[in-house]
Write a protein that binds this DNA or RNA. Structure first.
Length: 1096
RNA sequence: GGGCGGGUAGCUCAAUGGCUAGAGCGUUCGCUUUACACGCGAUAGGUUCGGGGUUCGAAUCCCCGCCUGCCCA
């Protein structure tokens, strides 16, 4: 494939010569490397996953599916975080030898994308969607999608994402479309997709139903209107089932008078003229919807409820007679309100004396609620409880209509054709004219608006397709996928136990952090059926052809036409599925789902007057299939031919179930849940034990199928410094490409990784760069500085090693620093492994930081400087340690480490026993090299103890040097106590190196010495300055500070030991430890005090 | 209304119930030490939100409250 392979694992110089360390620039400049490195990775096919290796048993699979970004916009910092984490996981596992597939792709994001394109077309051409043919407009969106898909792909690649780019998918491409079609067909056939009338969030501008997450609440100043509904007696059925026919016709409505109400015990009725018609007052913010009222509700605890029992009201103008129902949802009016049943005129308004906080609405409530089930979700609930009719009074464009369910409009026909806003004014005017408008009060409340059009959302009753996710084979199966220890509820008979031979591999779904399992579980416990219709043009068109008013003759004829090959109504055919829906009036509508877009039956159906549903599917429907569709379900062979890549045929088999899904928490309900439900329903049972690919018509697991992934990692959300979400509106977002430009991809990645703790939010202070005008954050300096540090450590190491290639025989270092560093390395590798296994990314970053910066750079490199030139074993150790560090760092700093590797990677210095570093698998690239494996023998507690003792003494000496302003280069004299074991020579020389000691002696200083205490022993330093200045001040400062620290320490220990319960109940070892520490501290304090006394 | 987080140094965050509560950035001081000033060495900085409780021992566990954020309804 790639003929001119010049670079294998040798330094990357065109002439093939060795690049010496000192030729590296002293700063790591990302722009000089990222492009080249990326090209090398891609040319080598380093990220291309081969299912064959998995199927032949040569490697274990590791799979990540990218949460497909919306093609609506460029990626933001949240995406950068999410994809950085995925890339770290992918790279780590690739290095560990897993055959790693990170499947990339994008999401068509139905409403979001269409809205953006509509806006753009309007801005540029002053044309609306409806000015185009459907196909024409969809083509426009397609072009937009191509543009943004390219943008997104570019962003991910710039970030260094090691996706298998040759396999990139799109939720609407032919491979994914086939999965959507098949999934819909199966669910439809099984009765899990049905047609239902429900209240939806209706956007009257886009004329589509929108999901809750496509809406926002906005505070709107509006009014409460107080409308009087006259009371009547009605005869005949008004609260029974006949309402299902839509309307309860007026039944001899006879006015109810105030005197009658008074007789029924209605409070304050006597204040009204006895023979006038009585009324009840409803308070509403949306008076125009009264055309759809089907009841007035009153709280059963309201004193007025009983006297009103059995009475009705007559809707003004409309003339509809509707019942009064009792429902405890109704808010009782505030005690201080004139609408309170016991309110007395002239009474002074009092504070509610019971101190219980009131529902703020109580101030505005009258105790009577108009019930409009077709236009309000709460009213719909009340309507459901009292079997009220739902009368729709609005057309899809948001105007009053008598053609969409409202049949008894009466004198209110003057409202027909008005917008809801116009209707509101008109209704108020008409009520006012009739003396039925009691009052108007200003009121501010939050109103749902559409994200896309900004229009006010109308709750709207409409025909929609639903997935019956409440079926146990979906929701319950999703909960049962959880690992047992993350289940909170034991309730219900599980599918696993119900289905014979349930495999335990089906309940291995595990959330990280574990608390999110609860969110997931509760979602399914309270789940509602899922509305999947969207009145859009951009998306997967619903594959249902329908005909209204189908007669028995039609059916017969259809049977005849379609029965060329089978009987569509009786045959268990796989090509079509039917649902027959009978409307209340008796009209039958026949819905036919056609399985394949190629079926000739479509032509026949259309010739019979069937038309395809104009709607498209909710975007999440196709997203829910992502683990399957991207790998070719239901027909991998066909997918292979679609993609032109034969290996596609084996993806599903080799890589599903996937390993981990990395995503944000709001996606748990929208996406994670649905993927689990669909995968378990549609993928065959026993999948994990299979040795063959699924067959196109193979039945699904019906809820007992496999899970789509084993782990779900929910990462934190990045907020700005004030704890606000980053958003375009606030202008506080940070563009990943800006950071890559200014700091480099690695710096961004490291910073994001280091921020990712297990909490739900993390903060990133955002500042505007005055020069570029772009948002950035000082946090990214951390990553940039770290990458630069590693670069320089490499640079230095290469300089040390230059010209010293060693023989390849294993060599165990004999020097203390190398033994110490190898021990630290082994501990670091283990810590990184543990952190990564738990998805604790900040831990991983922190361990790397400490290991590289603190241990390796601050101590190890400094320690070996004097000897590295002459000690071959030490050089071997250094080379191996650096190689290990670059490997450990690679997943988070891929570009920088690969660039450093170009200089180090191919050089041989011999191995270190116990440290296993496998060579790269592809073209000498670090990204395919082995993850470090350390044998336990590398750990050496005694060595670490020895070294840490040196570090402590060095710190004490440096403290004095700094306090004394000793020039850094000046070599001072260290006086060690006589009469105790002397420091071994190698340790003493390390101390000399770190603390810049000229000579070490057991003689006390003759003059100008500064006493220090170490391990309760008297040490001193001298020759701090040329002149024999008085060092007394420095010494006093040192000793005073020490005295304070020791006193505090001693107080702590004494307090602990003075507690009688401590000695009795605490572990003896701990008590002894405290005693030892106390003794040591006391001894040192005594020494300090003696020295201080010498100062007088 | 139900559920889930967070509150620790000026800022961003750590801390299996037990080490004098730690890092980074920022502060202050000193260093052009020949890998790195994107650096090196040192320094100050804390009522762990408040109040109770459990415990020999609480930042950590329990209860109450306050502040703050998110998800679901």
């Amino acid at each position: 494939m790639e003929p001119n392979e010049t670079v294998t694992n040798a330094p990357a110089k065109p002439d093939g010569s060795t690049v010496a360390g000192d030729e590296l620039p002293k700063q790591y400049r990302p722009t000089e490397h990222e492009g080249r490195i990326w090209a090398r990775w891609i040319d080598a096919g380093a990220f291309h996953a081969d299912p064959g290796r998995v199927l032949r048993g040569e490697a274990q699979p590791y799979t990540i599916l990218i949460p497909p970004p919306n093609v609506t916009a460029a990626l933001h910092l949240g995406h950068a975080l999410n994809n950085t984490l995925q890339d770290i996981l992918a790279r780590v596992h690739r290095m560990r030898g897993f055959e790693t597939l990170w499947m990339p792709g994008t999401d068509h994001a139905g409403i979001a994308t269409q809205a953006v394109v509509e806006k753009r077309v309007w801005k540029e051409e002053k044309k609306r969607r409806t000015d185009f043919a459907r196909d024409e407009f969809v083509a426009r969106i397609q072009a937009f999608k191509d543009e943004y898909e390219a943008t997104i792909t570019n962003q991910l690649q710039k970030m260094g994402c090691s996706c298998d780019w040759a396999r990139q998918r799109f939720t609407m491409d032919p491979v994914c479309a086939r999965a959507v079609r098949e999934a819909f067909f199966r669910l439809f056939s099984d009765g899990l997709i049905y047609r239902g009338k429900r209240l939806v969030n209706w956007d009257p501008v886009l004329q589509t139903a929108v999901a809750d997450d496509e809406c926002y609440d906005e505070e709107v100043s509006s009014h409460f209107y107080y409308l009087r509904y006259p009371l009547v007696h009605a005869h005949g059925p008004t609260t029974q089932r006949e309402r299902e026919q839509g309307i309860a016709p007026p039944q001899d409505a006879v006015p109810v008078t105030w005197s009658e109400l008074a007789a029924r015990g209605y409070p304050n009725a006597e204040r009204h003229p006895a023979e006038d018609q009585a009324w009840v007052t409803v308070a509403t913010t949306r008076p125009e919807t009264y055309l759809g009222d089907t009841a007035v509700a009153v709280n059963p605890h309201d004193l007025r409820a009983k006297p009103l029992r059995g009475l009705h009201v007559e809707l003004p103008l409309v003339g509809r007679v509707i019942p009064i129902v009792e429902d405890s949802y109704v808010v009782l009016p505030s005690r201080t309100s004139p609408y309170h049943p016991e309110f007395a005129p002239g009474q002074v308004a009092e504070e509610a004396d019971d101190g219980t906080p009131e529902d703020p609405k109580a101030k505005f409530a009258t105790g009577f609620l108009k019930v409009t089930p077709a236009h309000d979700p709460n009213d719909a609930e009340i309507g459901h409880r009292h079997t009220l009719a739902a009368i729709n009074m609005m057309s899809p464009d948001g105007r009053v209509s008598d053609k969409h369910g409202l049949a008894d409009i009466g004198d209110a026909h003057i409202l027909v054709g008005k917008t809801m806003a116009e209707a509101r004014s008109l209704v108020i005017k008409e009520f006012h004219a009739r003396g039925l408008l009691e009052e108007t009060r200003p009121y501010s409340h939050s109103v749902k608006h559409s994200d896309r059009s900004k229009a006010v959302i109308e709750p709207y009753l409409s025909d929609q397709w639903y997935v019956k996710v409440t079926d146990p084979r979906l929701a319950q199966a999703a909960n049962e996928a959880l690992v047992p220890e993350q289940r909170t509820a034991a309730g219900g008979i599980g599918m696993e136990s119900a289905s014979s031979g349930g495999t335990t591999s089906n309940n291995t779904l595990r959330f990280y952090p574990a608390r999110y399992a609860k969110t997931y579980e509760q979602w399914h416990d309270n789940i509602r059926d899922w509305c999947i219709s969207r009145q859009l043009w951009w998306g997967h068109r619903i594959p249902v052809w329908s005909k209204r008013g189908v007669t028995p003759e039609d059916k017969e004829r259809l049977k005849l036409i379609l029965s060329v090959s089978y009987d569509p109504f009786t045959d268990d055919s796989q090509a079509m599925a039917f649902q027959c829906v009978k409307e209340p009036q008796g009209t039958e509508t026949l819905h036919c789902c056609v399985r394949s877009p190629d079926h000739r039956e479509i032509g026949l159906l259309e010739a019979e007057g069937f038309t395809q549903d104009p709607d498209v599917l909710d975007t999440w429907f196709s997203s829910a299939l992502w683990p399957m569709s991207t790998m070719g379900w239901p027909n991998p062979a066909q997918a292979a031919s679609d993609t032109g890549d034969p290996s596609t045929a084996h993806l599903l088999h080799a890589f599903n179930p996937t390993s981990v899904l990395t995503t944000a928490r709001e996606i748990i309900t929208l996406w994670v849940s649905r993927m689990v439900m669909f995968n378990r329903y549609l993928m065959p049972r026993g999948w994990g034990n299979r040795t063959d690919a699924p067959q196109p018509l193979e039945p699904g697991g019906q809820g007992a199928g496999p899970i789509p992934f084993h782990d779900v990692f929910i990462h934190a959300v990045i907020q700005d410094g004030e704890g606000r979400k980053m958003s375009k509106t606030l202008g506080n977002g940070v563009d990943p490409l800006d950071i890559i430009d200014s700091h480099g991809a690695d710096a961004m990645r490291f910073t994001l990784c280091q921020m990712t703790t297990q909490t739900q939010d993390v903060r990133m202070p955002v500042v505007r760069d005055s020069k570029s005008g772009k948002n950035t954050s000082p946090k990214f300096d951390i990553g940039r500085n770290f990458a630069n540090k590693v670069w320089n450590a490499t640079r230095f190491t290469l300089g040390m090693l230059a010209g010293h290639e060693s023989p390849a025989s294993p060599a165990r270092p004999t020097d203390l620093p190398s033994q110490w560093m190898l021990s630290r390395l082994a501990a670091g590798v283990e810590a990184c492994n543990t952190a990564l296994a738990q998805y604790e990314f900040s831990e991983y970053a922190q361990h790397l930081y400490d290991l590289v910066w603190r241990d390796f750079c601050d101590w190890y490199l400094e320690a070996v400087k004097p000897t590295i030139g002459t000690d071959a074993a030490q050089r071997t150790a250094l080379a191996n340690i650096l190689s290990s560090l670059l490997r450990l760092l690679h997943p988070v700093l891929p570009y920088m480490t690969e660039a450093a590797w170009e200089h180090l990677g191919g050089r041989t210095f011999g191995n270190v026993p116990g440290l296993h570093l496998h060579a790269p698998r592809k073209r000498g690239l670090l990204c395919t090299a082995g993850w470090p494996v350390c044998e336990p023998s590398l750990r050496d507690a005694a060595v670490e103890q020895r070294f840490s003792r040196i570090q402590s003494l060095v710190a004490a000496i440096r403290e004095v040097r700094a306090a004394q302003n000793v020039p850094p280069k000046r070599r001072i004299t260290l006086h060690t106590p006589a009469g105790i074991p002397a420091w071994p020579a190698d340790e003493a020389s390390l101390i000399a190196t770190f603390a810049t000691i000229g000579q070490t002696t057991e003689q006390p200083p003759s003059k100008g010495g500064v006493a220090i205490t170490f391990e309760a022993q008297p040490y001193a330093v001298s020759d701090l300055a040329d002149a024999s200045e008085d060092a007394g001040e420095a010494e006093r400062a040192f000793l005073s500070k020490r005295k304070g620290d020791l006193a505090k320490e001693i107080a702590t220990y004494e307090g602990r030991l003075a507690n009688p319960g401590y000695a009795q109940k605490a572990p003896p070892a701990m008590v002894q430890e405290t005693k030892d520490k106390l003794a040591k501290a006391q001894a040192e304090l005594a020494l300090v005090l003696t020295k201080l006394e010498e100062h007088g």
